[in-house]
Amino acid sequence: MKTDAPTSTPSRAHPAAGAPTDAELIARILAGQKDCFELIIRRYNGALYKVGRSYGLAHATVQDLMQDTYVAAYQALGKFEARATLKTWLIRIMLNHCYQWSRKAAHQPQPAAAMPPTNEAPDTPQSPSTDGQQEILNRELGTVLEHCIQALPPDYRMVFVLRELEGLSSQETAQAIDITETNVNARLSRAKVQLRKQLESWYPRASVYEFNLIYCDEMVARVFRHI
């Protein structure tokens, strides 16, 4: 299998205007248009990848389990009854594969995904005027958020990922992980509280909106051009 991170359209979004719906794709696949399954794979790669990573599994393992999930889903597509959305159904299959893999690997723990070794915030970009600065900042913030989410208890982490990152409703999340909607909402609330504490440990309140010293020279120059 390839080891590149999955590429997909944003999983929160509905199919683009003019794109076939999940129901239409399923009907075409069952009618023999096997190639249509590619659209389903691309549509839900992002969602399944987040589920696997939130389960605490490494990138390569998640990709293997995504493949197993899609194969199992394709083979069982004729049994899909649409009592839940296709996305929720795929997530349930993915979660089952994650659980089975974790049981088998219980005596051979999966190496943890690479994370920053300390609670030090990422280094500040060296140049405030670099064209790619925003992209760099976004990547750094993403790394911090991934670290903080990974530190949540597994039950809270899964609910947070499904509700906040994948945009599932409380009902869909409850269906996906087989708990009540009340428990979904409770776990989400607790996850947010813990996540806030995690973020504060990385970025003290005093550092938020702080005017970093690296910007001072530029500000001095800008002011002196106008006085």
Rank of each mutant, 00 (worst) to 15 (best):
M1L: 14
K2Q: 11
K2I: 10
A5F: 11
S8P: 08
S11V: 09
S11A: 13
P15W: 08
A16Y: 02
A16R: 08
A19G: 02
P20N: 04
T21N: 12
L25F: 02
I26A: 03
A27G: 08
R28C: 08
R28N: 12
L30M: 05
A31E: 13
A31P: 02
Q33S: 15
K34S: 15
K34N: 15
L39D: 11
R42M: 10
L48N: 06
G52L: 12
R53W: 05
R53C: 05
S54K: 03
H59G: 03
A60D: 15
T61E: 15
T61C: 12
V62F: 02
Q63R: 15
D64R: 11
D64G: 09
D64K: 07
D64W: 01
M66T: 09
Q67C: 12
Q67D: 14
Q67A: 13
V71C: 02
E81M: 09
A82E: 11
R83W: 07
T85D: 00
T85C: 06
T88N: 00
T88Y: 00
L95P: 01
C98N: 13
C98R: 06
Q100K: 10
W101L: 10
S102M: 14
A105H: 10
Q108L: 15
Q110P: 04
P111Y: 01
A114G: 04
A114Q: 12
N119H: 12
A121S: 05
P122Q: 00
P122R: 03
D123Y: 07
T124F: 14
P125M: 01
P128F: 05
S129I: 11
G132L: 14
N138R: 10
R139S: 06
L141Q: 10
T143E: 10
E146I: 06
E146A: 14
I149W: 01
I149N: 03
Q150V: 07
P154E: 02
Y156V: 06
R157D: 05
V161G: 04
L162Y: 06
R163W: 04
E164K: 13
E164S: 14
L165K: 07
E166D: 13
E166I: 09
E166W: 00
E166P: 05
A174P: 03
Q175D: 05
T180V: 03
T182Y: 08
T182W: 02
A186C: 05
A186R: 11
R187M: 11
A191M: 08
V193S: 15
V193N: 13
K197P: 04
Q198R: 05
L199G: 06
W202Y: 07
Y203N: 01
P204K: 00
A206N: 02
S207Q: 04
Y209V: 08
F211R: 09
N212H: 15
L213I: 13
E218P: 10
E218S: 15
V220W: 09
A221F: 12
V223R: 13
H226F: 15
I227W: 13
